[in-house]
Design a protein around this nucleic acid. Structure first.
Lengths: 353, 353
DNA sequence: AAGATTTATGCAATCGATTGTTTTAAGGTG
DNA sequence: CACCTTAAAACAATCGATTGCATAAATCTT
């Protein structure tokens, strides 16, 4: 026998029928085989270094023990921890992940989806959902077990795991208000993305609830969750809303862009402008100034998403929405507004009335 | 017929034998089937929405069209672009990647390796090589097609793709020397890692070649390629080598740690200390000060690694080592040493003699 | 001790596609 | 028209494992 040993090799070595060898090797069916035979088979398998061929098994069992993971942009620092969490949760249960980067591109997304389907994945984790998402709707229509991570579709199609953004936004607004800010701007992420949309909604709501005036709290929509978009949105704010003393960025990448634009404009953070991010991505604490942000455990998020998916695949009913706890991490980028800035802001808003 | 259509379904619909349908569907064998039949089969396949079952095909062909990718730490910003490049290169050739995070942990690494082997991957891309690496040696002994990305083993086992570190280090040293630095420290990455090791070697070499004195150019070994290790190494340098006016960090993450430690110690970068990183990771340009570093295209690196692997799988002979061009990106973190610092350094080194 | 029951194992079909080997039918040749 | 060649399609084995069913042997009934 040359090459990788197969079940037949093991059976031959143990002098039993392949079927018997299979039963002896599998926990669940082992009881149907006599202890002596089990011993012989196990010994033979061990001796030959037998590993079951997962492809053949998958074909027969109609269960590939693989799942497809669609990530919009792996270079966005919040996704790697999610991927890690997913693996963490899949691996002990014998599952493995196919990972694809979709670049927020419909065509690439579809190609990855088809490729994974052809490979008979048992389910999908979509971390790339838009609020209205054709592909995900299609997966739903096809009845493919799936879970949404981080972002969701407007229609509730699949279970969804994310951080409790609403709570995070409230903590941010509360923190800024307590520091004394009255003019807070929000740079929202793309509105076709549930995270961008919901955070903006929450912002509008909590700003009002905490006694700030809608007029003093502008929302600027960024084109993407990245530094460039954050930078150009910041320029708009500095130009159109000079009274603003704090910026709540839709996520940490946008916040990085904010910090850069402020530096460029000679506006000092946090003295002249407080900045808050969202997600607490790996480098947030290492920026200068270190970033006040809301921490969500990406790893936990990924692990939970994978767990829900595996349950769904196994046919177990589970909750459809899991919101993970979030935590406001206060660092150097937020501080009370300058006294001068405050009175200036008052003047400005007074003048506008 | 309910569920996903199979080849048999297509054959039945086209009124031909499955074997014939298979030949009609496959480019290479299509010529063995009459044009009329090809038409009927293709139409039937199209009508039913047939997608070949890649698992079944893989079983028969003894070629799964998948590859395993082992990444040491996906949250290290240099790896996501590599993964992306890998996918970019695999996908058009019909291959798909299994990705696993090894966390530099032997056990997890081995588990991922075994899991991927059981799934019959056609080859591996190892981005996690240590200079002496048992698992990779094993893969070599087993004759599994593989390629090393970024890091390599001391023994030349598999083809290797990486940036031209030697050139990068020379450019860094030259840049610093031209700025007027004479006392340059290097914070090297772990020495069991070829990148950490080779960069340190190159540093020692080029520092000498450019007329600096070995004594003035200490090398401190960091425990890991991360910010914490960079921070504590910086403290050592500040304490033991006060004459140093520039630090070349083993990679960008270490450099981030350096910047943090300098800030903490009240040492101003770049006025009091120049800092250089390595890799030009996504956020390097957004740090404050923005980081002078050596850019290597991770995406290109990944794409090349995948290409070499696919060639190897196909049995095509290719070069065994590919060094990608690198580029020094000068940003704000490097500047000429302070005049005071320079003379201070001279004094210090004079005193030592 | 003959029949019923249980236990252990063998047999063979199956998952979905590919491919070497016939078989059938059509066309060409002398 | 008998014979040969060639093209097209069918047949059947195969990849490696799982599993319903059949069979043989051992144990238990009464």
């Amino acid at each position: 026998m040359v090459g990788i040993p197969t079940l037949d090799d093991v059976a031959r070595a143990a002098q039993v029928h392949p079927g018997t060898a299979s039963r002896a090797l599998n926990e669940e069916t082992r009881s149907k085989v006599s202890p002596a035979t089990v011993g012989r088979v196990l010994a033979a398998a061990d001796r030959l270094g037998y590993t079951p061929n997962a492809v053949a098994r998958g074909l027969r069992r109609q269960r590939s023990m693989t799942v497809g993971v669609l990530i919009p942009d792996l270079t966005n620092a919040i996704f790697p921890p999610i991927v890690r969490g997913i693996e963490e949760s899949l691996s002990p249960r014998g599952f493995t992940a196919f990972v694809a980067n979709t670049d927020n591109d419909d065509y690439r997304e579809r190609r990855a989806f088809e490729a994974f389907r052809a490979r008979q994945v048992d389910g999908f984790i979509f971390a790339n959902a838009r609020r209205d998402h054709g592909l995900i709707q299609e997966a739903f229509n096809l009845g493919i077990p799936s879970v949404l991570a981080n972002r969701r579709t407007d229609k509730s199609l699949f279970p969804w795991v994310a951080g409790d953004d609403d709570d995070g936004v409230e903590q941010i607004v509360k923190h800024l208000v307590e520091l004394g800010h009255t003019h807070v701007a929000h740079i929202a992420g793309p509105q076709n993305n549930s995270a961008g949309f919901a955070r903006a909604e929450s912002f509008r709501h909590f700003v009002k609830q905490h006694g700030l005036r809608e007029l003093d709290c502008p929302v600027v929509i960024a084109d993407a969750f990245d530094t460039e978009s954050g930078g150009s949105a910041t320029k708009q704010i500095l130009h159109h809303f000079p009274a603003v003393t704090a910026i709540f960025a839709g996520n940490d990448m946008i916040a990085v862009g904010v910090l850069g634009a402020l530096r460029e404009a000679g506006v000092h953070c946090p003295v002249d402008m407080s900045v808050v991010g969202f997600n607490d991505m790996p480098l947030a604490k290492d920026l200068a100034p270190s970033l006040t942000t809301v921490a969500v455990s990406g790893q936990q998020l990924g692990a939970m998403a994978a767990t829900l998916l595996l349950d769904e695949i196994a046919g177990v009913d589970r909750e459809r929405t899991v919101l993970l706890p979030v935590e406001l991490v206060v660092r150097e980028s937020t501080a009370p507004p300058r006294v001068g800035a405050l009175s200036l802001a008052r003047q400005a808003s007074a003048a506008r009335e």
